[in-house]
Amino acid sequence: MVWINIKRILKLGFVNFWRNGLVSVASVFAMTITLFAIGSIYLGTNFLNSALSEVKNKVDISIAFKLDAPEDQIVALQKDLTLLPEVKEVVYSSKDQELTAFRARHQDNAVLIGSLDEVGNPFGARLNIRAVDPTQYEKIARFIGTKNDPSTGGGNIIDQVSYKKDVVDKMADLINTSQRVGWAVALVLALLSIFAVFNTISLAIYTSREEISVMRLVGAGNPYVKGPFMIEGVIAGVIASLLALILLYPSVLWVRDTTVGVYGGINLVSFYFSNFGIILVLLLGSGILLGLLASYWAVRRYAKI
């Protein structure tokens, strides 16, 4: 009995969705825009996060030693640093290696290379340190400071310590802000689309007022009168989520092609495919929820005859 009723309500919902034509198309359209925004923001968030971790991996502390710094002291410092639990890796680069690297980077600049030949090797040796976690760079930098201070028994051999914490922090801030803005935009769009779907379904209900009153008079209960409208909302949500999923693909291709030079490591297209299931569930879930909410409100408001 219950199953027969569910089957009939489902059937009525599908038939009404089909016969309502333009109103149904309008609901689907409004929901597709929102779901596309939700999908874009989900993909964008992941894209930015992986970009951030990529950059974090590239960041390290670089110690430039004075020209006259003795190599044994540098190697000793390297050993000390390696023993720190916060440190992942310490790479030693000698004065000659620094010079070779510089020459390689600027091989096209004849003036620079020419002047190098005149002054000899202006570079000191370097230690490049990578931390286990980028937040620990400051601690490591302090450790290096004490090692360099003659008053604490240090060697005063370091010329400069540089680490790109500021860049990482700024980038993290930027990403955080853009994510917050993104979700706020999605929320606004979701509310707008609930409103749009609410209006289109209200329109459908308003034009069916007479019909609803007839349904009531022939003894149709609440599930029978309201159920099909809810089903219509769900159908619109499902179609809209599938449309949004299809629309995301060319967008993802475009983003990959325009950012491939900046972030070589992240491929948004393969991310889209490897997370297809999650994106599908996210969009379907949001679509069904949007449709249900909008039609529930519309039905509550207009189907009270």
């Binding site: 009995m1 027969i4 009723n5 009939r8 016969r19 007479e210 019909e211 009153s213 007839v214 349904m215 008079l217 022939v218 003894g219 149709a220 209960g221 029978y224």
Partner: peptide, 24 residues
């Protein structure tokens, strides 16, 4: 008359029967 305009003669009556849970 108050018939359901989007339903055929058959469907108009079928709706009433369906609403009262009569079998197919």
């Amino acid at each position: 008359f108050r018939l359901l305009p989007n339903k055929t003669a058959y469907e108009n009556i079928a709706f009433t029967m369906e609403a009262s849970g009569r079998p197919d």
